[in-house]
């Protein structure tokens, strides 16, 4: 076969390579929705939010020197109801320090929501305008961030927390952060 003839195979070869990529993209476990935060290892955004159920505001200064988890939720968000048993379990076992940020929500609705599904949070800030969420780069509720002792974001999870995420991500993360 001459080189000229071989050239005509080029489109076919290129397509086959492409098809292999497509096949890989369809493989189970591949999830284009997983988006890393650009804020990973960067200082958490500063905020100063009115407290829900308490007069003290919630600010990022409250976290100083501690490993904390910040969970964005809302009463109108269905997946938040789904993850609430997992959060309640974490708070009962006192595994993590969990703070909540109520996203684009009416305080009275949020209080009703917490009465119904339980309140796993140490304290809650009200982000009615959603500005704090924008600064964190929240895609949608629920979303959870881990902030280390130095006030840097170390981990982010989009979507509801599950026991599997707790086992495979949060526990190892705590070990890592505790050790360093």
């Amino acid at each position: 076969m001459t080189w000229r003839r071989a050239l005509y195979f080029l489109p076919l070869v290129a397509f086959l390579a492409l098809a292999a990529y497509f096949l890989r993209g369809l493989a189970p476990g591949y999830d284009p929705q997983v988006l890393p935060s650009v804020l990973i290892d960067k200082p958490a955004p500063t905020f100063d939010l009115a407290g829900l159920k308490s007069a003290t505001p919630l600010t990022n200064r409250d976290f100083a020197g501690e490993i904390v988890f910040v969970n964005f939720f809302a009463s109108w968000c269905a997946p938040c109801r789904g993850e609430s048993p997992v959060l309640m379990d974490l708070s009962r076992r006192n595994v993590i320090q969990l703070y909540g940020i109520d996203y684009k929500d009416k305080p009275e609705d949020a209080i009703k929501f917490l009465q119904e599904f339980g309140d796993p949070y140490r304290r809650i800030g009200v982000d009615e305008s959603g500005r704090t969420a924008i600064n964190f780069g929240v895609y949608g509720v629920p979303e959870t961030y881990a902030i280390d002792r130095a006030g840097r974001i170390r981990w982010r999870h989009v979507g509801p927390l599950t026991t599997q995420v707790v086992q495979t991500e949060i526990m190892p993360l705590l070990k890592r952060l505790g050790a360093s």
């Binding site: 005509y8 195979f9 489109p11 076919l12 397509f15 086959l16 098809a19 497509f22 096949l23 369809l26």
Partner: peptide, 17 residues
């Protein structure tokens, strides 16, 4: 759809080659 793509595009490009 990937199988369809494979047959339609792969087939026609093979014919082309």
């Amino acid at each position: 759809i990937l199988v369809l793509l494979f047959i339609a595009i792969g087939g026609s490009l093979a014919l082309y080659a």
